[in-house]
């Protein structure tokens, strides 16, 4: 039996009388690349923020890396990496300084930080930008850096909120190679995206509509189930019935 890294039971988040996340049940297994899909406003980011311990559930339960997301947020945080939709590393710090800061926060030993920084920068091809201020480097590089920072401390699971938004196809492809490498290292990947070709790269995907999970399976099974040629069609068929999103 493969262990579950994420497990939620009727997880719900309400803001006033608006139910952003409506009774979702989700199991994500160790080493998986899990695609968390949904239209804008479907509640993906809210659900992800609850799983990361940034937001308290209104009701229901959730466990991440074995810790209760309603009560043990700080324990959850020790075992996860997170890359937010909006780039949120320090723009006024240099590339290596951002890595050093977050490595230090996760209590990486001082002498390990320098060596590991070198290997990480080599891997993402930013060795020559080591001393550049982050605000000076292009978006695609920033995203790769943010990803490296999110997995620097070898978390059990990494949450990626639209990591490839606004990035060119070549960098996007390279980014997915990084995701596969992380998964090969045993890091579970939980990723949201709007690119349906990326959904095909995932081991399993779920599709959220109006705060509920409408489908959850492997891309192959979903295509068969919805009688579609690709994930794009599956997504359209499901998202059509959405009432609260802006792009139907």
């Amino acid at each position: 039996m493969i262990s579950k890294v994420i497990e939620t039971r009727n997880l719900t988040k309400r803001f006033g009388d608006f139910t952003a996340v409506d009774n979702i049940n989700l199991d994500v297994f160790k080493g998986e690349i899990f695609g968390f899909l949904g239209a804008n406003g479907a509640g993906k980011t809210t659900a992800m923020r609850m799983l990361c311990g940034l937001s308290k559930p209104t009701s229901g339960q959730g466990f991440v890396a074995g810790f209760d997301i309603a009560r043990q947020q700080e324990d959850v945080k020790k075992h996860i990496g997170y890359m937010s939709q909006k780039f949120s590393l320090y723009e006024d710090l240099k590339v290596w300084e951002n890595i050093r800061l977050f490595a230090g926060i996760y209590r990486t030993k001082n002498h390990e930080i320098a060596a590991k920084t070198d290997s990480v920068l080599a891997k993402i091809g930013l060795s020559s930008e080591r001393n550049a201020l982050v605000k000076k480097i292009p978006l695609g590089w920033k995203q790769k850096l943010a990803f490296s920072v999110a997995v620097f401390h070898n978390p059990a699971i990494v949450f990626l909120d639209e990591p490839t938004g606004g990035v060119d196809p070549v960098t996007r492809r390279r980014f997915w190679e990084l995701i596969y490498e992380a998964a090969a290292d045993g890091i579970t990947v939980f990723v949201t995206t709007h690119y349906m070709d990326e959904a095909e790269y995932c081991n399993r995907v779920s599709i959220m509509v109006d705060g509920k999970i409408e489908a959850i399976d492997t891309p192959q099974h979903l295509r068969r189930q919805f009688n579609a040629n690709n994930m794009d069609e599956v997504f359209r068929k499901l998202a059509r019935k959405a009432e609260r999103n802006d792009n139907g």
Partner: peptide
């Protein structure tokens, strides 16, 4: 405002 607090809040920093 810059969003960096989010990256800090998701770490186990006390």
């Amino acid at each position: 405002e810059s969003g960096t607090i989010e990256q800090i809040n998701v770490t186990p920093v006390g």
